[in-house]
């Protein structure tokens, strides 16, 4: 890989914004499974596996699945955040494989938030 210059840094920033912020990437949803130590201990890997399985079964290409660190609310792990295009992200709590499968079907595919498992909508305040 070539050494970066400041311009490259800016280019990466612009390019990548679209691949992970939905807008320009042509994606309609992004699912983030929170995989910090607390999440993994509570079963986040199984949740991720179930999700990948669901994606493969349905042959989905326009949804980003990614992992990230601790969401901060450790007593509610495993957690995942579902962000649909043009909607506030929704955080789901106390997940297991069955629950994420339902969330995938009802929220990501069906467009309806699964209230029973949802913790909160929106993003935290930064800065």
């Amino acid at each position: 890989m070539p050494k970066l210059t400041v311009d490259d840094l800016k280019k990466i920033k612009e390019e990548y914004k679209s691949t992970f912020t939905l807008r320009e990437g042509g994606y309609r949803a992004k699912i983030t499974v929170h995989m910090g130590t607390c999440g993994i201990a509570a079963g986040a890997r199984e949740v991720m596996n179930a999700l990948m399985d669901e994606m493969a079964k349905e042959n989905i290409k326009d949804v980003i699945v990614t992992n990230s660190g601790c969401a901060g609310f450790c007593s509610r792990e495993p957690m995942a955040t579902v962000e649909m295009l043009n909607h506030a992200p929704v955080k789901y709590q106390l997940l297991n494989p069955e629950k994420i499968r339902r969330i995938f079907k009802e929220h990501v595919q069906g467009g309806k938030v699964v209230d029973e498992f949802a913790l909160v909508a929106g993003s935290e305040t930064s800065y």
Partner: peptide, 14 residues
Amino acid sequence: KGLVDPEKIEEYIA
């Protein structure tokens, strides 16, 4: 936290 994929430098840069 919980926003970027910690294994992708590009997301941090973004």
